[in-house]
Design a protein around this nucleic acid. Sequence first.
DNA 1: TAAATATTTTAGATTTGTCTAAAAATATTT
DNA 2: AAATATTTTTAGACAAATCTAAAATATTTA
Lengths: 221, 221
Amino acid sequence: MLNYSTSEENYIKAIFHLQRQDNTVTTNELANELKTKPASVTDMMKKLKIKKLLHYEPYQGFRLSIEGYKVALGIVRRHRLWEYFLAEKLKFTWDEVHEVAEDLEHVSNKKLIDKLDEFLGFPRVDPHGDPIPDAHGKIEISKKICLTDLPLNKVAVVSGVSNQSSEILELLEHKKINIGIKLEVKKRFEFDHSIEVRIGRQPAFTISKELAENIFVKYGS
Amino acid sequence: MLNYSTSEENYIKAIFHLQRQDNTVTTNELANELKTKPASVTDMMKKLKIKKLLHYEPYQGFRLSIEGYKVALGIVRRHRLWEYFLAEKLKFTWDEVHEVAEDLEHVSNKKLIDKLDEFLGFPRVDPHGDPIPDAHGKIEISKKICLTDLPLNKVAVVSGVSNQSSEILELLEHKKINIGIKLEVKKRFEFDHSIEVRIGRQPAFTISKELAENIFVKYGS
DNA sequence: TAAATATTTTAGATTTGTCTAAAAATATTT
DNA sequence: AAATATTTTTAGACAAATCTAAAATATTTA
């Protein structure tokens, strides 16, 4: 696997993430994501096309080639392992890890990353609940589902809330439900559709149907 | 403290190291150290002078300013903490850590480095026995002397070897002389200049003049 | 479907860090 | 102290990554 510049890696990674939602990525989308100008995106797309990392015809948008996808998985692996390290070992909070990992991910020494992986105990998800590709680029596809649909007794990671009003944030704060936290559903009550949730080994507590409908979790394939 | 590019940091660090031996650093010395061309050095020196990181007059060589020295200590701190992490936590051997730390040192997030320091238990020397500057840039000045010059019966800490060939490493491995180990010289033999060494309370053993000349120890303060 | 609007690309400039070749300054020899 | 050798700097070029402004293409709307 060749080496790519920090800038090339950032473009590849951004395309990787944007592709998840939409099959083909546009110039403006990417410029917006990377806080750069559309003209710069076009320049880089030409370069990455020559390097066979993506499929691209002028005005038609672009998507990663098989090779580009492999490169992206390598970057994502490094990013998520560092995030795990930062949260687990250095005690950064889940909302701080991303920014720091943005820099660390570009140190692309395979032995470093494989040894880090081993040191961390081969974690399968990062602090946001996103799966970490293994040394061979294998990645668990984790479904993002609503808390109301999580099977009983399956540990899942809170990965987002659909409604971001201050009211819901206040409630989540109070219940200590943060992004990245691991929880499982212990029981569902038919009467009001409230659900009983447990975080780690703490005592279970109940949350309303309304709240549950706004919480998304990721859980193993 | 401002941020500097990877390239600027590499120049600053190289000047820092070259200054130890010689008070003022020359263009050719620096070009040689960084495997670059003298013209590139001159270009960068002009830039670093404008940024007030060094004292420099054309044809007169250069040395770091107070500010440049502070910047250098920051880089050295990051480098040595990562070296310690790589050796202690990821089980790299002490001769592998330098190269990897060369990349990691340029991630200059103060909180990251301070938390890493804490995680590692505030180590005072790196795997080569070189002192690690603390969060305020304070660095222990420890005398590093050759084993041949260590006074008899004074306990010292092995801090480095000048020659890093696999032959010397094999021998050190066999004699169980590792970086960080405490030893003392019990006797010197005039005939072949071999010396008798003791590690802790184990039986003393003899090492050759050739080996002793390549072992550096930290002793007293 | 033609005009208006939005998106994308091109052309040309800029910054950073590097290089080669030639000129200038300094050091060393004879 | 003049000639020679070495070191350092300058001048000008180049590649990577970015930008602005203008041109080309695509999409929307009336």
